[in-house]
Amino acid sequence: MATQVTVKILRYDPEKDKKAHFETYTVEADPLDRILDVLNSIKWYQDGSLTYRRSCAHGVCGSDAMRINGRNRLACKVLVRDVGGDAGKKIQIEPMLGFRILRDLVVDMDPFFEKYKSIKPYLINYEDAPASSERYQSAEDREIFDETTKCILCGACSGSCPPYWAGPDFVGPAAIVNAHRFIFDSRDQGAAERLSILGEGEGVFRCRTVYNCTDACPRNIPVTKAIEQIRRAMLYNR
């Protein structure tokens, strides 16, 4: 049953606007429509200047992370009825905090990716692989870091993290999760290097256990748990 949905979007065009401001749109939408569908409807039929990122539109590419009713979510995973749009409540859409706004809902992800690269997100192994086969890993060893392999680098966690907002150089939960994926991988030998990066002032010890990251993650990665495991690993191995 299609209903009228009111949407408030934070708009900002660096070439025209001095500061960001809200604009309100009314859209006809079905309760099972996704927020991304609502954005598309606005862009295609009402205001072509609305700018946002999207790609796969089904929750695996991580392009459309944004603040929906104050919380970081993927626009293609949130349904209109999830945020009360079908009950007449206003839907508020803003870009994520902690990132410089480039335009409308598009934020500058470069610093985010620099921080990701700084923790060496690739397998480090100083021995050659066995000639006859791959580097063997048991199912149990694979289980250990299973959760942190799921990161899609959407930025929802880092964008929800108060120390990340406070800056300036905290690597952020996403970088720590991706470091965890390799640190606890039994085939990897680069734990010492990554731990020493994460042990510095802008590493894991900026985390204040706020838990916003775990709440925000669209892949249900237990981010806080991963960070705690790294801190304990540092403590017990000093």
Binding site: R67, N69, G70, R71, N72, L97, S160, P162, R208, T209, V210, Y211, N212, D215
Partner: peptide, 12 residues
């Protein structure tokens, strides 16, 4: 303003 959940308020 970020509408964080209980963890955020407890931290503040």
């Amino acid at each position: 303003m970020y509408r964080g959940q209980s963890g955020m308020w407890l931290w503040i």
